[in-house]
Amino acid sequence: MDDANQIEVPPSFVALFTTGAGTRLTHPMGAVRERYELCEDLAQALTEQASAALSASGGDEQAVLEKIQRALQAEGSAVSPVEASWVGRRLAELLGWEAPGRD
Rank of each mutant, 00 (worst) to 15 (best):
E83T: 08
A78Y: 03
L72W: 01
W86F: 03
T26R: 14
S51Y: 10
A21P: 02
F17H: 15
A50G: 11
R33N: 03
P28M: 14
G59M: 08
G58V: 07
P81V: 10
S12T: 15
L91A: 02
A52E: 08
S77W: 12
L38Y: 00
R70W: 04
D41F: 05
S12L: 13
G30D: 05
L65K: 01
D41A: 06
Q73D: 09
V9K: 04
A63D: 13
P100W: 12
R89W: 06
H27M: 14
A74S: 14
D2V: 02
E83F: 11
Q73E: 13
V64C: 11
P100H: 06
V14N: 07
L65Q: 04
T19L: 09
V87R: 00
Q69N: 07
L38E: 00
P100A: 15
G59C: 05
Q6H: 05
L91R: 02
A78Q: 06
E93L: 05
Q44Y: 11
F17L: 04
L94K: 06
G22W: 09
K67H: 05
N5H: 00
R24P: 01
A21K: 04
S77R: 08
G58P: 08
S55L: 11
R90V: 01
E48D: 04
E40M: 05
P81H: 09
V64Y: 04
G88E: 03
P10T: 09
R70Q: 11
T26H: 14
A56R: 02
Q6I: 03
A53T: 06
A92I: 08
S80R: 03
V79H: 03
A15G: 12
G58L: 08
D3H: 04
T23H: 13
L25Y: 14
G96D: 08
M29E: 15
Q69M: 12
R89N: 03
Q73L: 09
S57D: 13
M1F: 07
E98W: 15
L95Q: 06
P81L: 14
I7F: 01
K67C: 05
W86P: 01
E98L: 13
H27N: 15
K67I: 02
A45N: 09
G58A: 12
A43F: 03
S55Q: 12
W97H: 07
S85N: 10
V9F: 12
E93C: 06
V14T: 09
S57I: 10
M29R: 14
M1H: 09
A99M: 15
P81S: 09
C39M: 03
A71M: 10
G20W: 11
P28D: 15
A43P: 00
M29K: 13
K67P: 01
S51I: 05
L46K: 02
E75D: 13
I68W: 11
P100E: 07
F13L: 05
W97C: 09
G58Q: 12
A78S: 07
D41I: 00
A15H: 14
E93V: 11
Y36M: 00
E61P: 04
A45P: 02
R70F: 06
G58D: 10
E37F: 00
T23V: 12
R90T: 03
E40F: 06
L94G: 01
L91Q: 04
L54F: 14
A74Q: 13
R70K: 10
M29C: 15
G30W: 00
S57G: 11
